[in-house]
């Protein structure tokens, strides 16, 4: 199940819900992404560190959900998953806020771990979300990382 929302999410409630949908699961993996105060996405130079005051998450309503559904479907085709849950927040967020949840349930841990990793890798580069970072100095759109695109290559067979 896919949700794109401004509101926060409760890990325990999501875990309980996923468990109820997952039947006889032997493994549940939950990944939570958080907004960091120190953001180095724009530069690899440690001297360029800039403290995030807030983030604004823009997305493409409609296409976002379609892409997330597609990524979840692809994961379900590669691994024997019993349930998948993706939540991505949009709008204004602050350091320490939860931004994304990816949870997968399977009979065995390897499938749950790998599929959650796969979903996150594709979500970062193939779902239409954009982050704008505001620091004390400026507001700027965060640029994509080459490493994020490279990390998709390991899933090609």
């Amino acid at each position: 199940m896919i949700s794109v929302q401004t509101s926060d999410f409760e890990l325990e409630a999501e875990y309980t819900s996923l468990r109820n949908h997952a039947g006889d699961a032997g493994a549940i993996v939950m990944f939570t992404g958080l907004v960091r105060e120190i953001c180095t996405a724009q530069s690899d130079n440690p001297g360029d560190l800039d403290k995030t005051e807030r983030l604004f998450l823009e997305h493409y309503p409609g296409m976002t959900e379609k892409q997330l559904e597609k990524i979840a479907r692809e994961a379900s085709e590669r691994w024997p998953l019993l349930a998948v849950r993706i939540i991505h927040r949009v709008g204004e967020l602050f350091p320490g806020d939860q931004i994304v949840l990816v949870a997968t349930a399977s009979s065995h841990r390897q499938a749950a771990f790998e599929s959650a990793n796969f979903i996150m890798d594709f979500l970062k580069s193939r779902a239409p979300f954009w982050k704008k970072q505001t620091s004390s100095a400026e507001s700027r759109w965060i640029e994509s990382r080459i490493s994020d695109v490279d990390s998709l290559k390991r899933w090609r067979e």
């Binding site: 996405a41 991505h88 979500l123 979300f129 954009w130 965060i142 640029e143």
Partner: peptide
Amino acid sequence: VGFFPSMTGG
């Protein structure tokens, strides 16, 4: 038709 920059979600 949508035009947009590289994506930076997650």
